[in-house]
């Protein structure tokens, strides 16, 4: 069984009297550790696909299975647990908590799941605040924000905020990382740096499955797999040799 499976997935949205078909009979299999670029024009269903995999939404019809978990049939409570333990999300508009500093934003995520520590030869999860703080700092340093940890989001630039968002998503070491237009709000240089960061912090070595949604086809070479959507259907689904982020240009 593939790590992520979507079978005959249909998703409708009803707004007032209008029903919009966002996804129309999607069938998909993704292996663990793949970096998947989901590409397509506006309204193609890219974000909807991500939301169904991430447990933010449930399909109208069909099944979504992730790591043998039937995500599409989970209750709201179990979906929360699923998102907490399995999924990391990077948002287009960063979505940092404005009243928390960069460090606290990452700590928040870690306080939900705890920090793994290897004690007496066995992995345990600790909620010790010192351990959590250290882990948060570690990830902020990885995203090169070691000197901006105590700043609030309103004091950070767009690129810095997105880096905090990445640190927050990855600090809890999720199996799946979902990034919806992570560079959509950033200029080229910063956007490329963000992609480089994500590339470095994910990848096959870490066995983390990554989905990046974009409407920018210049980013497509970054992925192991490219899924092109149009009008809620998969037009193309192919694997490729990936191109490092630093070689991308748009």
């Amino acid at each position: 069984m593939a790590f992520i499976e979507l079978k005959n997935v249909i998703k409708n949205y009803t707004l007032g009297e209008t029903t919009t078909l966002a996804l129309d009979g999607i069938n998909l299999e993704i292996e663990k550790g793949e970096l998947v670029i989901v590409y397509g024009p506006s309204g193609a269903g890219k974000t909807t696909l991500l939301n169904l995999i991430g447990g933010l939404d449930i399909p109208t019809e069909g099944d979504v299975t992730v790591a043998e978990i039937p995500v599409s049939t989970l209750s709201a409570q179990w979906l929360t647990v699923y998102r907490r333990k399995k999924v990391g999300v990077v948002f287009q508009f960063f979505n940092l908590i404005s009243r928390l500093t960069a460090l606290e934003n990452v700590e928040y995520s870690l306080e939900l799941v705890g920090v793994k520590e290897n004690g007496k030869g066995k992995d345990t999860v600790s909620f010790n605040s010192k351990l959590i703080k250290n882990k948060a700092k570690e990830y902020l340093e990885k995203v090169e924000l070691g000197d901006r940890m105590n700043h609030f989001p309103s004091q950070l630039s767009g690129g810095e905020q997105q880096r905090v968002s990445i640190a927050r998503a990855l600090a809890k070491e999720p199996e799946i990382l979902l990034a919806d237009e992570p560079t959509g709000n950033l200029d080229y240089n910063i956007g490329r740096k963000i992609l480089e960061l994500m590339e470095a912090m994910t990848g096959k070595a870490l066995n983390r499955t990554v989905f990046i949604v974009t409407h920018n086809d210049a980013i497509c070479p970054l992925g192991d797999r490219v899924i092109r959507l149009s009008d809620g259907q998969i037009i193309e689904n192919y694997t490729q040799e990936y191109t490092p982020a630093k070689e991308l240009y748009w």
Partner: peptide, 14 residues
């Protein structure tokens, strides 16, 4: 609203 939605998204229980 967006922040609370974000907190729920990253796994904060209701």
């Amino acid at each position: 609203q967006r922040e609370i939605a974000t907190l729920l998204t990253i796994g904060t229980p209701n």
